[in-house]
Every structure is written in C-alpha cells, then in structure tokens.
Simulated scan of single mutants.
Amino acid sequence: MRFKTSVRNIQTFSKLTASLSSLGKVAWVRLDDDNVRFTVIPETGTQVWASLSISSIFEDYTIQSAAPNNTIDLELSLPPLHRALKSALNATSASVRLTKKDGVPVLSFTIITNTISSGNSAGGFLHGTSDDPFGDNAFREERLDANMGRDREAVITQDIPIRVLTAASVEGIHEPRVRDPDAHIILPSLIQLKAISDRFTKLAMATSSGGTRSGLSNAANVPKLELAANMYGSLKLSISTDALNISSVWTGLNNPELDPRQIEDSGGLEEHPSTKLKAAGPDAWSTVRIDGRDWGKVLSVGRLGGRVIACFADEHALILYVYLSNYDDGVDDSVLTYYISSFSV
C-alpha cells in the first residue's frame, strides 16, 4: 500500500478542512486513482459527502493498493489535519505520504519554507579614534553579503495518526436517500446568507423566553430557521419566536434546468415534483426548518467560493451541492454535498 503526493493548492485544502471540521471532528477519506473523497457523518447535524478531483488539491499523485482502482480508505481527525495545512500556508512546497511511525500509520506532512536569517547589521562599523569621522580607521571593508539577510530553507514534518480501514468495514457507508426535491435554486452569496442567518439566530436566542440564561445551548431549545424556495427564483429566510418574527427574501435567483436523463426513473420531467410546484405558481413554496447554529457552520463553505445549488424536499430535507472550480479543463467538477434534515413543525 502506497500513497504520496504534493499539495497543489494549500489554501483551498485548508479552507476545505476548516469547513468540514466545523461540522464533525472525524472524517472518512477515500483515495483512489480518480478522486479524493471526504465524508463527515456526525452523530447529529449535517452530513457532508465531498468528492474532489485529484487536480483540485494535489499534483504528482501516486497511489497503489491491492484494492480495485487502487482504493485506500482512511479515518482521520480533522483538527490536526487543518493545523498542519495552516502551518503550510506560506510554504514553498508541501507533500504528504502514507507511512508508519513506531508501528502506527500516519499521514506525514513535509512542509518546506524559506526563512530570512538576519546578519549583524552593526558588524561593519568601527568607532575610530581619529577626529575625522571619515578617516582610515572609521570603517573596514567587507563582502557585501556579510550583513544582508539570507534565505534559509526550513523543513517541518507533521504526522497525523490515522486508521487504515478495510474495504468490508466501509462497504455499508452510502449517502442518505432523499426523495426528489420540490424546488431547486442557485443560492445567493453564502457569505451574505451566513451573515443574515447568524444575525437572525442571535436575535431569536436573545429574545426567547429566558434568553441564554435558560440554557439555550441545548439543541432542542435553539430557535429554528425556516428556509423556503419556489420555482420562480425566490428564496425566503425567516425565524419566529414569541417575541420575534422576521424574514428576508431574495428574488431574481436562478432555478436551474433539470437534466431529463437524470430523472427518467422518477417518471420523467412532467411528473417531477419541481414541475408540479412550478405549475402551482409563485406563491407555492417548498419549506424546511433547520438548526440556525448548524446552518451557520454549513455556510462556512462559502469561503471556498463556487456555485451552490439548494434542493428542497418539502418538510423533509435540504440538500446543498457546492461546485468548486478545477484547475484542469475537461475534468469533472469537484462537489461537496450537504444533507440537512428538516425539523417538524
């Protein structure tokens, strides 16, 4: 079993791990000849299934195993991975390989940085005894580089303990099964959406009975955001408590066209729930209710940029597809898929 690669885009990889670790501390990672997959399945809250093209984060990629497609399945802790990547943000290069240290499997990061070593800035000046400050004894001649900062290469190694998983142990892991969505819409800027969502949640928590003193840290007591979309380019975010009822509406958004080939098993485009919702007019909405704090963590993926499509299964679930740009033309998009269950009324 062998895996070694250079990190092509440290910043993107760091932002990805920061976003994933906000939702769960442990990830299942699948490496193979074609893709890199990260899966986060916390006990409660949003699940993330990320499928990345190799070129989006790696280069000089080498992998070998006895499994089909040279697949290697790993389990790792996300916080130390993110810390290693943060330490490499200003590096000239970073590489990672699968190895063992004291019999324990690890992902070993080798980070190379250039540091500037300062010379002795006063080393070329001597206090002369002559009354003439420009006399022969005032200075001594030296080589130019004696007092200049010089680049020095520093090599840092960070080892992240992992578990190498058997194929049988991950065979039953699969993405949640969700019925066909009633509405699908391209979301506005996630940074803007996060700012408004966080503000709504904080206001609701502050005005709820007893406020934070009553223990709103309990997930059952956290106010729920209501998110709704129609098939006429509108998105609505609202929250309601005994003391507060506020909402914000976006219009002019895009409802992307469905690919008929992808919905043949659902009876075709004419029978698709989104077609029926559109026929019901702009006042027909598909609605989900979500934990405001969890939603804020999901929206942290906005730091990666990319196009985001939200699919609403009314009163059931919200699925986000976050499409990231790839370096190489002709390579399939990297996509992060978020599954968020809806709370009942």
Rank of each mutant, 00 (worst) to 15 (best):
V335M: 03
W295Q: 03
P181M: 07
G119M: 05
T110E: 12
D332T: 02
V288A: 06
L235C: 06
K194I: 00
P176R: 10
R303P: 04
S274H: 03
P260D: 00
V36C: 15
L244D: 05
F125A: 13
I186L: 15
K278Q: 15
S6C: 07
A317D: 08
I160F: 05
K202W: 03
D180C: 13
E141G: 03
A228K: 10
L81E: 02
G267C: 09
S55Q: 11
I186K: 11
N70D: 11
K278T: 01
Q47S: 14
D136K: 10
H184G: 15
F134V: 00
A167D: 05
D180G: 13
G124N: 11
A284P: 14
R293T: 00
W49K: 03
H174T: 01
L237M: 13
W49G: 09
A280I: 00
G281F: 12
W295V: 01
V298D: 01
S248D: 04
P273I: 03
I54H: 05
I290S: 04
S238F: 08
N218W: 02
S77W: 05
S118E: 12
K25D: 08
D332C: 06
N137R: 07
S55G: 11
Q11P: 07
S65E: 04
K194C: 04
V164K: 08
N137V: 00
L52W: 01
G330Q: 03
I173R: 11
A279N: 10
S217Y: 08
R293H: 11
K25E: 07
G281I: 02
L277I: 02
N35I: 09
L253A: 00
I263Y: 12
V288S: 02
K100G: 05
L336D: 00
F58L: 13
Y339N: 05
A50Y: 09
I160R: 06
L107T: 00
V322K: 14
D314K: 09
E257Q: 15
T251H: 13
Y321S: 13
F139C: 09
